[in-house]
């Protein structure tokens, strides 16, 4: 059985035992990744037409395609070395078969090494605190709204804390989302972020909220003072609620290029990043940077954003993701 078939089987098997909602999930993945897939796959297919035999030119163009998907120069170079080795060892000449090997190896990049949980850690003894961090404009506040919607629809009580006291209108934006999702809200503009969060968490504990989502200001990872502020915020969070933050999610824009790796590294140094939320995947960007981040920084993706609707935030599933990318080819 070819590797594609295997993947197809995995996804098919999954959907056989799944309920309707979960099946829809797979369909949503396919839909959301439509634009992403069209370009990526058509390029690979053209490559297959052009070269029926594996050759140096084939490798070069493949390298091009992978780099264009923002998978990352280092990761691509390593990937190409591995692929070349495999082609030599297994004596692969057929480009049709090689396509399958490519998908297989891409999966391996992600699943190799430590297996990392893609689930959100829930605090059994009190509020679960989720801290959202990232550079400017990646979609932290919108992602919080979507998470709030998700937890509300699971019948949990949710509170949003406006830790972005810097950007104009940020607190108002979060407040509107809190109202729309019927969540509690705590915010105080023009004060120190750490103190707002401190007070907010005290209130969350008092009200015994299930899920607390903390918004923070966008900060470029090379700004020392802003990163120090984040360090302080991180410390403050632990004072009221044990083990908090239970999750620190780094939000990354799928459009991001190689800088995504630096973002992941820098934020991981300051806070205990537990996962990544990859936003804006409904555009034409491939979000290949998550493969590089997994390989170089070892961080799993927990959610992906596939659209602007409240239901468009999906738990990340590598098989669904890769299947979504290559569906037309399988």
């Amino acid at each position: 059985m070819g590797l594609f078939d295997k993947l197809k089987n995995i996804v098919a098997k999954k959907s056989a035992v799944l309920d309707k909602n979960e099946k829809e999930e797979i369909i949503n993945y396919e839909k959301g990744l439509k634009k992403t897939r069209e370009e990526f796959v058509s390029k690979l297919n053209i490559l297959g037409f052009k070269y029926t035999k594996v050759s140096e030119e084939y490798f070069e163009e493949l390298e091009n395609i992978l780099i264009m998907a923002d998978i990352g120069v280092n990761t691509v170079m390593k990937f190409m070395d591995k692929l070349r080795k495999r082609v030599k060892e297994e004596n692969i000449t057929d480009t049709e078969y090689l396509k399958e090997v490519i998908v297989d190896e891409l999966l391996i990049i992600y699943v190799e090494g430590e297996s990392l949980s893609d689930k959100i850690k829930i605090n059994e003894n009190g509020p679960t605190v989720i801290l959202m961090v990232g550079v400017n404009g990646v979609g932290k506040t919108t992602t919080i709204a979507k998470l709030a919607y998700k937890y509300k629809s699971e019948d949990k009580s949710v509170m949003l804390i406006a830790g972005d006291t810097f950007r104009a209108g940020a607190s108002e934006q979060l407040k509107i989302w809190a109202d729309k999702t019927d969540s509690l809200f705590y915010g105080k503009s023009e004060s120190d972020a750490a103190s707002v969060i401190y007070d907010g968490l005290l209130l969350a504990k008092e009200k015994n909220v299930d899920i607390v989502l903390i918004d923070t200001a966008g900060r470029l990872q090379n700004k020392v003072n802003l990163m120090k502020e984040l360090e302080k915020i991180n410390k403050v969070i632990g004072t009221h609620i044990e083990g908090a933050p239970h999750e620190t999610l780094l939000v990354i824009d799928a459009q991001t290029g190689q800088n995504g790796i630096m973002q992941a590294k820098a934020f991981k140094e300051i806070t205990n990043i537990t996962g990544i939320v990859l936003t804006k995947l409904d555009g034409t960007a491939k979000g290949g940077i998550v493969l590089a981040i997994k390989e170089e920084v070892n961080l799993p993706v927990k959610f992906i954003g596939l659209g602007e609707k409240m239901t468009d935030l999906k738990p990340f599933d590598i098989e669904n993701y890769i299947y979504g990318l290559f569906k037309d080819m399988i």
């Binding site: 780099i67 824009d253 459009q255 991001t256 290029g257």
Partner: peptide, 14 residues
């Protein structure tokens, strides 16, 4: 956004 990756060109052309 200066941090954009390879997809920038699709966006600009679009």
């Amino acid at each position: 956004d200066a941090m954009m990756g390879q997809d920038a060109i699709n966006v600009i052309n679009g």
